[in-house]
């Protein structure tokens, strides 16, 4: 009963809190643009780390108000791509536009202003270790708004309720399990009701129940606020159920993109291998190495030869 009330409240709340935030002088841009104007444009990105060419010409369009999923084998650079979008890393070539602004040409101040409009869920959670769970979620509200304490308390508790951790508010990050920490991080990422949320592997380490809750949460946040979501995930079933559009990256390039239904029937072997989780196929499972035969036998021979 109470659960239901709080759930409705939670999803009504964004509208309410946006109203409050505007009253307190926080500019919250409401999406008045046409929905077909892309929110993020990634244009021909090249990026390398040392000799490791991570991206060799990646272009993407991430539409406004939709859930866009980015999938690909482990180590292809999905996290790197999110960091490029967030302005943490700078591409060697190409540019990224968010709402028409070139992220890597902004001044430090403008970049921080832009980031207030985004939320990012880190793969590692990245909670502040000197603050407890409650203060972690309250952090963005405290630094970016002048809301009175009672209101911050209510907002934080509702966000924690939505991820099922209202009772854990006094724990420190060190006392949380991995899955709990990511849920707290999720609550923190949506604390300010941002226009854009970047989720890096939101489902990792969740049991089936909390997984279901998170899937619903992401979907409803997206619908209720018409915010733009980018989800990086390996969980194909869950991702397909919420994504409006999908990008598959491998080997430094976009291999395929389209709506979930078109990708599921895509004939490209690289795509179908990934979508159906087959170990053998054109997408290598192994990090580049010499052949197993040489690695093991060559070593044995070397030992024998002394």
């Amino acid at each position: 009963m109470f659960d239901n009330i709080s759930k409705t409240l939670f999803f009504k709340l964004p509208a309410l809190s946006r109203f409050i935030l505007t009253r307190f002088g926080i500019e919250m841009k409401v999406n008045q643009h046409m929905t077909d104007v892309p929110f993020i444009q990634v244009e021909d990105i090249h990026f390398s780390r040392g000799d490791n060419d991570i991206f060799r010409g990646v272009s993407m369009i991430i539409p406004r108000g939709k859930v866009t999923a980015i999938m690909g084998p482990s180590g292809t650079g999905k996290t790197t791509l999110l960091k490029l979008i967030g302005g943490q890393l700078t591409p060697d070539r190409g540019r990224i536009l968010i709402d028409g602004q070139d992220v890597h040409r902004l001044s430090r101040k403008a970049l921080f202003a832009l980031r207030k409009r985004m939320g990012m869920l880190f793969q590692s959670g990245a909670l502040f270790s000197d603050l407890d769970v409650f203060e972690n979620v309250a952090f963005p509200l405290r630094v970016h708004t002048d809301l009175p304490d009672t209101m911050i308390r209510d907002l934080v508790l509702l966000k924690l309720q939505a991820v099922g951790l209202r009772g854990a508010r006094h724990l420190t990050p060190a006392e949380l399990s991995g899955g709990m920490a990511r849920r707290v991080a999720l609550a923190r990422a949506v604390a300010l009701d941002p226009e854009l949320i970047l989720y890096d592997e939101p489902f990792v380490g969740q049991d089936p129940i909390s997984m279901g809750v998170l899937v619903q949460l992401i979907k409803r946040l997206n619908q209720a606020l018409s915010l733009t979501s980018v989800v990086v995930s390996h969980d194909i079933k869950e991702t397909l159920s919420i994504a409006d559009y999908l990008y598959l990256i491998a080997d430094g390039q976009v291999v395929a993109h389209g709506s979930p239904s078109t990708l599921e029937v895509n004939q490209d072997p690289r795509v179908s291998q990934f979508m159906h989780g087959e170990p053998d196929g054109p997408v290598p499972f192994h990090y580049p190495a010499e052949t197993l035969y040489r690695d093991i036998l060559g070593h044995d021979l070397a030992i024998k030869a002394g």
């Binding site: 980031r115 985004m118 990012m120 880190f122 970016h144």
Partner: peptide
């Protein structure tokens, strides 16, 4: 250093706090 290694500094930047 530990805050940097656990991405706390990065996540702070992404929240829009320097």
């Amino acid at each position: 250093g530990l805050m940097k290694a656990t991405e706390q500094l990065t996540s702070m930047e992404m929240i829009g706090v320097d």
